[in-house]
Design a protein around this nucleic acid. Structure first.
Length: 702
RNA sequence: GGCGAGAUAGCUCAGUCGGUUAGAGCGAAGGCUUCAUAAGCCUUAGGUCGCCGGUUCAAGUCCGGCUCUCGCUACCA
């Protein structure tokens, strides 16, 4: 078999916080299983990852914490890298995009594309914070929403009304960094004209018929919407600087300009590969991987990264011209936690390193692998975790090993007994080894890791049945030869399992091989270790010594599971204040909304607040959020559209006496005019409830 | 509203090109067993394949419509 060359990447984790189990299940565990398998198989594998350390969010976090961006990424990089190591990730290189090599590589990449006229320069006005001397990403401007009047709308989106906004449209904008009033200032950026290359991309995608439907569907969705130019640079003091030569050639002052994080991050795969080859004393070695048509480039990512890995980065590679394009991008969907989305702000999460403090990596790997969100969003629950480990991994696999080995130790002095005159059943059981080896391999090749794991566990179930049927504890006296055959075959099954489980459960597999006196598995094509195909045939020599020991897979106590549940609830409650209803899946910031700047009394006096009685309320057609209400203000009845349908039913409002902004300019929405605004109180859990008062309709509110 | 993905047993999920009685694991019930980690094996129960209509000799599978969930997007207090 000629070795295939696999260049595999897992999405670069963003160095802004720790990893949770959802990350692990999305891009990392599948990539690791794939790589470990391909190495065992004898293929050439280079597995690359690293920390993504640029971007506005990291800069902002640093400012909030009063530290430098480098402090933030150093800390995160450390924590993430350590968690990966403990989780058993077998990266050949784990880099970071703040490295010199990366800066150099991505700047050169940018320079080449710029030199060949691949970008479009465009100037536009953006908000600038004169105190911080920074251009502000939309996210870092707050102000009054022009649509709904919410005074705390973010520049990219108003969380009150859900509007997508541009920061420039905010009324009374201010910087979240300094509270200064931003000013409009012109700035120039390099745009990648994706639309110009839509046909090339469409053609390329059309050749990828074997990609997962969720990936192709996403791509199709983007393509049909028409690809738009995307800015590949930003005004930020943190990141890979726009090369001076490029800026000079364009006649642009590049000071304070960096590459957009989504331009530089995927290049991180390339620069990490360069670092790897430098570290191996072969500075040009990376080219053999990236600049070679025979390389199978595979990106493991979560579904949020599809557009970049399937359209933007491939286009960048294509335009550059020297690189291979991805062979496959097996993106996973998302993992939920106990039925709800992972949420950092609500602290609804299980952090990978915390989980590794409590349970062996292989337990997490097993449980996550059996529920990987391969075709749709999946759910991690602690009780399910406990059941899978105890009922499957411990009872089916761990106990099979134990019963075979202890029997061998007690009845055959720990030596693999000979196989003499095997029965049909014995032969059939040995034949199963080849079938399972093939089936598991086939599943992994198609990125069906759940299926692969199930196939592997089926062999363990076969083993248990084979033992029960053979009843060696009876034949030990009645038919010693049959007894020996049964134990011989059962041990061969266990031996194969020690290979087949290696990609999934590297630690358990290794300890198992230790007990069977088997050596290491193959890491490189030429290396002499045990190969994947070894699992297809009997592996143990007659007379070889096996050892008994502590349980290979100790069970988890129920109390440990309950403790995790309690911990999760407690952390969530602490983050969301009094909210105990964990069932609320609506996303919202856990913190109190920041206090707005002081206003003059005269400003306040302009607002005419009245009590209104809600006469009727009904859902608006064609709208997810709007309720159409008729509100009696005493002196007249108004039609008011309230964007609360996701929180309240019409019955929640009908008959209520609520506070109304009575002198708000009327505005049409979805063709219907709204003549005012109902005031709502928004809790930190994001839930709305009407601001009510027990006064007659028309009463003023001061 | 538009686009994409999904909905199959109590739970987690398979189900290929339309083809016999819709499968697996876990859980449940009953039985057997004792080498073993209160383990193992066997048997059984459990499904209107989200809903409605259509094509077909035949639909979980193909087509149309609808409902719900998730994501993106539009409108939007």
């Amino acid at each position: 078999m000629t070795a295939t060359r696999y260049l595999v990447t897992s999405a670069l984790p963003y160095a802004n916080g720790p990893l949770h189990l959802g990350h692990a299940a999305g891009a990392y565990l599948p990539g690791d299983i794939f790589c470990r398998f391909q190495r065992l198989r004898g293929n050439e594998v280079l597995y690359i990852c690293g920390s993504d350390e640029h971007g506005a969010a990291i800069l902002m976090r640093a400012r909030q914490e009063g530290v430098t961006p480098k402090d933030v990424v150093d800390r995160s990089h450390e924590r993430i890298a350590r968690a990966f190591e403990r989780f058993g990730m077998s990266f050949d290189w784990y880099g970071r995009t703040s490295s010199a090599t990366h800066h150099e590589t991505s700047a050169a990449f940018f320079e080449k594309l710029a030199g060949e006229g691949r970008f479009v320069l465009r100037s536009e006005e953006q908000l600038f914070d004169p105190e911080a001397k920074l251009f502000l990403a939309d996210r870092f401007v707050v102000g009054t929403c022009p649509k709904c009047g919410n005074a705390n709308a973010y520049g990219d989106q108003c969380e009150a009304c859900g509007s997508s906004l541009s920061a420039k449209d905010l009324i009374d904008p201010r910087s979240t960094l300094t509270s200064a009033t931003p000013v409009l200032r012109e700035t120039t950026h390099w745009f990648l004209p994706l639309g110009d290359h839509q046909e090339v991309l469409a053609k390329w995608i059309a050749s990828r018929v074997d990609w997962k439907p969720n990936v192709l569907g996403q791509i199709k969705s983007w393509m049909e919407g028409g690809l738009e130019d995307r800015a590949m640079t930003r005004d930020l003091p943190w990141g890979v600087a726009v090369p001076k030569a490029v800026a000079d050639a364009a006649g642009v002052d590049a000071s304070g300009k960096v590459l957009y994080v989504w331009f530089d991050a995927p290049i991180g795969y390339i620069s990490a590969t360069r670092e790897w080859s430098q570290a191996h004393g072969d500075p040009d070695g990376w080219r053999r991987w990236w600049q070679n048509d025979e390389t199978q480039l595979v990106h493991f990512i979560g579904k949020d990264n599809i557009v970049f890995h399937c359209l933007v980065f491939p286009l960048m590679l294509h335009l550059h011209g020297d690189y291979v394009l991805p062979r496959d991008v097996p993106a996973n969907e998302f993992l939920n936690l106990e039925g709800q989305k992972f949420s950092t702000s609500r602290n609804w999460a299980v952090w990978l390193d915390d989980a590794l403090d409590e349970f062996p990596a292989d337990y997490l790997r097993y449980a996550l692998c059996s529920i990987l969100p391969e075709s749709k969003d999946a759910d991690f629950s602690w009780r399910d975790f406990g059941a899978r480990i105890n009922n499957e991994l411990a009872d089916t696999l761990g106990n099979l090993v134990h019963r075979c080995v202890t029997f061998c130790v007690r009845s055959f002095e720990g030596r693999v007994p000979p196989l003499e005159g095997p029965s049909d059943v014995d032969r059939e059981a040995l034949d199963q080894l080849a079938r399972t080896t093939r089936a598991v391999a086939d599943s992994i090749e198609h990125y069906r890791f759940r299926e692969a794991l199930a196939e592997l566990m089926n062999l363990a179930r076969h083993g248990n049945k084979y033992l029960s049927d053979g009843e060696p504890w009876k034949t030990k006296k009645s038919d010693p030869r049959a007894c020996a055959n049964t134990i011989h075959v059962a041990l061969q099954i266990v031996a194969s399992l020690s290979i087949l489980s290696d990609p999934f459960l590297p630690d358990i597999a290794q300890r198992l091989r230790g007990r069977l006196g088997l050596g290491a598995t193959r890491r490189e094509p030429q290396d002499a270790g045990l190969s994947w195909d070894a699992a297809a045939q009997p592996l143990l020599e007659v007379g070889a010594t096996v050892h008994d020991g502590e349980a290979l897979v100790p069970k988890i106590e129920d109390s440990a599971i309950e403790a995790q549940l309690a911990k999760l609830e407690a952390a969530s409650r602490a983050a969301t204040g009094t909210a105990t209803e964990a069932a609320d899946a609506s996303s919202s910031a856990a913190a109190y909304a920041p206090l707005l700047p002081t206003i003059a009394f005269e400003d306040f006096a302009k607002i005419d607040l009245r009590i209104g009685r809600v006469l009727s309320a009904e859902k608006m057609k064609k709208s997810k959020k709007l309720l159409r209400c008729e509100v009696d203000l005493g002196f007249e009845v108004r039609q008011i559209l309230a964007g609360v349908a996701e929180h309240l039913t019409p019955e929640d409002l009908i008959g209520k006496q609520v506070v109304v902004v009575a002198n708000l300019a009327a505005r049409p929405m979805l063709g219907t005019e709204s003549q005012g605004m109902l005031l709502m109180a928004e809790g930190r859990d994001g839930k709305l409830s009407p601001a009510t008062a027990a006064q007659e309709a028309g009463a003023t509110v001061r």
